[in-house]
Computed example of a mutant assay.
Amino acid sequence: MSTSQQAIFQYLGLNTSLFPTGSRYAGIDTGTLTTNTGRSIAYVQRRFLPKASTLAVLQQYTVAQGDRLDNIAYSTLGDPGLFWQLCDANTAMRPSELEVQGRTLNVTLPQGTPGARNA
């Protein structure tokens, strides 16, 4: 989306994000890099991970044999695409780090969602 299109969307109060609301990148700005040849390259700006200790814990989940993070996200958060939220809450860079039988996972509200910590 061009800068002028983004300005029109913002003026009208419309969402200019390239990512859906449930995406880990929702609300993250994009940038444009112009190379020395004049080529413009769009990119997503850096997403900083939240401190897990600042997230409100809704419940805990103990991983069973054969569990996958997308299935855990579906059963606890209602959306398999929110697996990244479990990664954030449990300081994991890769979903496979959390798919260990017997591991207890924190299921939390997303960063910025009001709620008492360790609710």
Results as ranks from 00 to 15, higher is better:
Met1Tyr: 07
Met1Leu: 10
Thr3Pro: 06
Thr3Lys: 12
Thr3Gly: 07
Ser4Gly: 14
Gln5Gly: 05
Phe9Leu: 15
Tyr11Arg: 12
Leu12His: 09
Gly13Phe: 09
Leu14Tyr: 14
Leu14Phe: 15
Thr16Glu: 13
Phe19Ser: 08
Thr21Leu: 04
Thr21Ser: 01
Ser23Lys: 01
Tyr25Cys: 04
Tyr25Gln: 07
Gly27Pro: 03
Ile28Trp: 12
Ile28Thr: 15
Thr30Asn: 13
Thr32Ala: 14
Leu33Ser: 09
Leu33Gln: 07
Thr34Glu: 11
Thr34Ile: 13
Thr35Arg: 11
Asn36Gln: 12
Asn36Ala: 14
Asn36Asp: 14
Asn36Ile: 15
Thr37His: 14
Arg39Phe: 14
Ser40Ile: 09
Ser40Leu: 15
Ile41Met: 10
Ala42His: 13
Ala42Leu: 12
Tyr43Asp: 08
Tyr43Glu: 08
Gln45Cys: 09
Arg46Gly: 09
Arg46Glu: 15
Arg47Phe: 12
Arg47His: 13
Arg47Gly: 08
Leu49Ala: 11
Leu49Lys: 12
Pro50Arg: 08
Lys51Arg: 10
Lys51Asp: 15
Ala52Lys: 08
Thr54Gln: 09
Leu55Phe: 07
Leu55Asn: 07
Leu55Ile: 08
Val57Met: 06
Val57Trp: 05
Val57Gln: 08
Val57Tyr: 06
Leu58Gln: 08
Gln60Ser: 14
Val63Phe: 05
Ala64Pro: 05
Gln65Tyr: 03
Gln65Phe: 03
Asp67Arg: 04
Arg68Gln: 12
Arg68Gly: 14
Leu69His: 01
Leu69Trp: 00
Asn71Trp: 07
Asn71His: 06
Asn71Asp: 10
Ile72Gln: 01
Ile72Phe: 02
Ala73Asp: 01
Ala73Ile: 02
Tyr74Ser: 05
Tyr74Val: 01
Ser75Tyr: 00
Ser75Pro: 01
Ser75His: 05
Thr76Phe: 00
Thr76Trp: 00
Thr76Asn: 00
Pro80Lys: 00
Gly81Leu: 03
Gly81Ala: 03
Gly81Asn: 05
Leu82His: 00
Phe83Trp: 08
Phe83Pro: 00
Trp84Ile: 00
Gln85Leu: 04
Cys87Ser: 02
Cys87Gly: 02
Ala89Trp: 01
Ala89Gln: 01
Asn90Ala: 01
Thr91Asn: 10
Thr91Arg: 06
Thr91Ser: 11
Arg94Thr: 10
Pro95Lys: 04
Pro95Val: 01
Pro95His: 05
Ser96His: 09
Leu98Asn: 02
Leu98Trp: 02
Glu99His: 09
Glu99Lys: 10
Arg103His: 01
Arg103Gln: 08
Leu105Thr: 03
Leu105Ala: 02
Leu105Cys: 05
Asn106Lys: 08
Asn106Ile: 04
Val107Leu: 03
Pro110Gly: 02
Pro110Asp: 03
Gln111Tyr: 11
Gly112Ser: 07
Gly112Met: 09
Thr113Ser: 11
Pro114Phe: 08
Gly115Ala: 06
Gly115Ser: 05
Ala116Gln: 12
Ala116Asp: 11
Ala116Ile: 10
Ala116Phe: 14
